[in-house]
């Protein structure tokens, strides 16, 4: 039997959850023996595979690119895991919601710079009116809270999922921890 496949994706986040994934340290090599990492910022393949067993998603959905990406990923993933508070609550990326897209672009590209010009979409991604947590866009199977979730929690959850057990993350971690 071939090994289960694993993918990791970052949407609108800080990469900290991926760093916590790397904080598994040598346990990374244990994980690598049990699953095949087929798609991730850490590997070179650029197109999402046809079917992945477990996908960890870091970050909120804040641009049209993010939305298209997560819909495609959901359609090609068995178990979708919201990794960290941005994916689960939209957290810091969601703090822009009360202001509206135009106000945040103006602040960064017009009001605070010597040569004001908001770049056209394509140069920057087309932002959605509101930043949304992943489960508001597609169904999510497992939630791993934390900013970021600890390496221990990620390791334990992956071990559970690989073995076919239901992980109980809420006992191990609280939001914002």
């Amino acid at each position: 039997m071939s090994k289960p496949t694993l993918a990791t994706v970052w949407l609108d986040g800080c990469s900290g959850c991926h760093m916590s994934f790397l904080d598994m340290d040598e346990r990374l090599l244990t994980i690598a023996q049990e699953v095949e990492l087929v798609y991730s910022p850490l590997v070179d393949r650029k197109d999402f595979p046809d079917l992945v067993d477990i996908t960890l998603v870091e970050g909120a959905v804040s641009s049209e690119e993010d939305r298209a990406k997560i819909k495609k990923i959901r359609a090609h993933t068995n178990l979708l895991v919201s990794l960290g508070d941005c994916a689960i609550t939209s957290n810091v990326p969601g703090m822009r919601n009360p202001f509206g897209v135009q106000a945040i672009l103006n602040r960064a590209y017009v009001e605070t710079v010597a040569m004001p010009k908001v770049p056209e979409y394509g140069v920057i991604p087309k932002l959605l009116d509101r930043v949304r947590p992943v489960h508001e866009v597609v169904p999510v199977d497992v939630y791993l809270p934390g900013c970021p979730p600890s390496a221990d929690l990620i390791f334990k959850t992956l071990q559970d999922l690989i073995a076919g057990r239901t992980p109980q993350a809420s006992e191990a971690q609280r939001f914002g921890a």
Binding site: R96, F99, A103, I104, R107, A108, L127
Partner: peptide, 8 residues
């Protein structure tokens, strides 16, 4: 990626 820290 653009999150608008300048404003938020």
């Amino acid at each position: 990626q653009f999150r608008g820290f300048e404003k938020l």
